[in-house]
């Protein structure tokens, strides 16, 4: 059986809020290492990969591999019934029909119990190779969100160009063009504003802004975001969570006509 207790419901609320417009039904794969999810959007352009390691939970117990097939819309409805600070416990049997959620207020004076009916989901699973990326950019997640939102007002796509010490986000639209450049920046006083660009070779790739704006819904999960790029491979956008857990998005690049 599965029993996983989260100190703060907000983590799961934010994860589901961040991915539910991209994927609708997905399996939460539970085993003794934690709870994982991999799902592609309908157009096969973007992929969500979530890993909540067992250390994220306290306690965490899962004796067997259990796949919880959940409709994310339903999941969100139930998670909205939890306060952000509530303690959240997920429970399921070994061959479950439902997943149970228990929300406890931090003062322990209220306990809410919900069940969500599970679905059989036959999901395509992609093998994602370990990639040595040519460029890895770490930047404030809010900054990345702003850039994507601003440029999406002008254009459907953005070119991300990484070169030594600088990354440039460039768009060309009907009403005009836009470009935002960021350079390596490190401050002891405000480390949350740091920008770090690691580069082994220059990279320039074009991506759909609609998807990037969608990924940025995860900004509340982490103060920083990591963008990993190599020429002619999908972009990795990673939000690191506590205990080596993560929420990752992959986006296929656009190719020239």
């Amino acid at each position: 059986m599965l029993e996983a207790r989260l100190e703060q419901a907000s983590i799961l609320k934010k994860v589901v809020d961040a991915i539910k417009d991209l994927v609708q039904d997905c399996n939460f794969d539970c085993n003794d290492s934690g709870i994982a999810l991999q799902a592609m959007d309908n157009s096969h352009v973007a992929l969500v990969s979530m890993m909540l390691k067992s250390d994220t939970f306290s306690p965490f117990r899962c004796d067997r591999n259990i796949a919880l097939g959940i409709n994310l819309n339903s999941f969100q409805k139930v998670l909205r019934c939890a306060q952000n600070e509530d303690i959240l416990t997920l429970k399921a049997d070994d061959s479950p029909d439902v997943v149970s959620l228990v929300f406890e207020s931090s003062e322990q004076d209220r306990i809410s119990e919900y069940d969500i009916k599970l679905m059989d989901i036959d999901q395509e699973h992609l093998g994602i190779p370990d990639t040595e990326y040519a460029a890895t950019i770490t930047m404030p997640s809010g900054e990345f969100q702003r850039i994507c939102r601003d440029l999406s007002a002008l254009s459907e796509s953005v070119a991300i160009e990484a070169e030594k010490n600088a990354v440039k986000f460039v768009c060309n639209g009907d009403i005009g063009n836009g470009a935002i450049s960021l350079r390596n920046h490190s401050s002891v006083e405000k480390p949350e504003q740091n920008v770090n660009i690691e580069l082994s070779e220059p990279v320039a790739l074009t991506f759909s802004l609609k998807y990037l704006v969608n990924f940025c819904k995860a900004s509340g999960l982490s103060g920083s975001v990591k963008l990993c790029l190599s020429n002619e491979v999908p972009l990795l956008v990673e939000y690191e969570l506590a205990s080596n857990s993560y929420l990752r998005f992959y986006l296929a690049p656009k190719i020239g006509d």
Binding site: V45, I128, T206, P234, A252, P253, I255, G256
Partner: peptide
């Protein structure tokens, strides 16, 4: 307009 690739061109099905 650039054409959007498909992820399964990069990642193999398991």
């Amino acid at each position: 307009t650039p054409i959007q690739n498909d992820l399964s061109e990069f990642f193999s099905m398991v």
